[in-house]
Design a protein around this nucleic acid. Structure first.
Lengths: 208, 208
DNA sequence: GAAAGATAGATTGCATACAATCCATCAGTT
DNA sequence: AACTGATGGATTGTATGCAATCTATCTTTC
């Protein structure tokens, strides 16, 4: 039950909090079985640590952890961008480019994330390495999960992202591998900074 | 039940084979519950694909998939080596070096893999990014699982690995980030070639 | 003959009960 | 007073039954 996963985090569990299977089951009005599977998935995503007969403890998630996460994500996605620069076909690039320019006209903030995810997925796909694409998708899901867990503060994509996206697409179109990788790196650095800022804001809010 | 995971593969399931939960449960004389969790873990490792009401299908695993896997692994581990070159402390490096030279004298082939895993784990640890270390451990486990699944053919570590290990340690000691990353890359390239050769051998053997 | 619908079988998703394991506390002994 | 062993509570690991869902085949209708 995927809802359980998000639910587990939407509440404000602080890092180090301990949650047993029965507690979680009671909390979400389901049996232990789906909770158990949800916890296993959360553990595989590195969000909780499962300790035998001790319950699941929610790992701390602050600036340091966020930067570590984005470090790995950057590693994966810059490589994908590098590979995509030689392998992605022009029609896919043009299609995405027009999607982004269309988005700019419409000004729909909620569609930003969707298109962002589409771009990253398309690049991962073009890298022609399903395993790499799978890892990228995993991290995309992870970020999405954390975003929902932290709340709406992270909902706004940073304003410069559109320009960054277009720059990535331009590099891909020009078949410039190094430039594409660098553009992706900078895009993710911006995203990381934005996420860190949001987490800090939430941290402050929780103290009040 | 981790035994189930290995057992699922130790048999010769060819890529595309379909296995339902009840079949697996009967096969290993356990109930569906642990089988289910094992399949979920296998799916998270990208070894099987879970299709609703269709059973788990074992993904094909040939040369292409192996090279894709090692491409991701190389990405993770070269970065770890790069980071470790500046952060790993001398005592840890020296300790590993002496372990390897001691191993050379003893000539115990079964201890090779263990020490190899220790080296990679130590470097991952030294990178000071628990998430990166976690991913590296995940891939180490994955390779180990595949190794056991394919059989004893992959059991022999390639002969040049000792020299490669020592070279990595030398680069780390010299705090040469680029050299350490390059040494790790070459080491993994060798390992990949060795694994590919073994898989091909098994493929031939299965045809007879 | 082809397509749409129904029906039966198969398969997974969830709930509950039970067994095994672990941890902490407390009593007893030196 | 410190250490060892036992005991009870808590927590996870596993088994089993039932409900929901999907797939494939067969039937019916046009």
């Amino acid at each position: 039950m995927r809802g359980v996963i998000h639910g587990l985090l939407r509440g404000r569990w602080r890092g180090g909090d301990r949650l047993t299977e029965v507690d979680a089951a009671d909390l979400f009005k389901v049996s232990r079985t789906p909770v158990r599977e949800a916890l296993l998935e959360l553990a595989s995503m590195g969000i909780v640590e499962l300790r035998r007969n001790c319950g699941a403890i929610l790992l701390p998630f602050g600036e340091k952890e966020l930067r570590n996460l984005y470090a790995v994500r950057t590693l994966l996605e810059t490589e994908a961008a590098r590979l995509a620069a030689t392998r992605m076909d022009d029609t896919a690039i043009d299609q995405l480019k027009s999607s982004f320019t269309a988005l700019r006209r419409e000004q729909r903030p909620d569609a930003d994330w969707k298109l962002d995810r589409e771009l990253h997925a398309a690049i991962a796909q073009a890298a022609d390495n399903p395993r790499l694409a799978g890892e990228i998708a995993r991290y995309s899901d992870l970020v999405q999960t954390m975003r929902e867990a932290v709340g709406t503060v992270l909902a706004d994509i940073h304003s410069a992202s559109l320009a960054e996206h277009l720059r990535i697409l331009r590099c891909l179109k020009q078949r410039d591998t190094n430039a594409a990788a660098e553009a992706m790196r900078q895009h993710l650095a911006q995203a990381a900074s934005s996420a860190v800022a949001a987490v800090k804001q939430v941290g402050k809010a929780q103290k009040h």
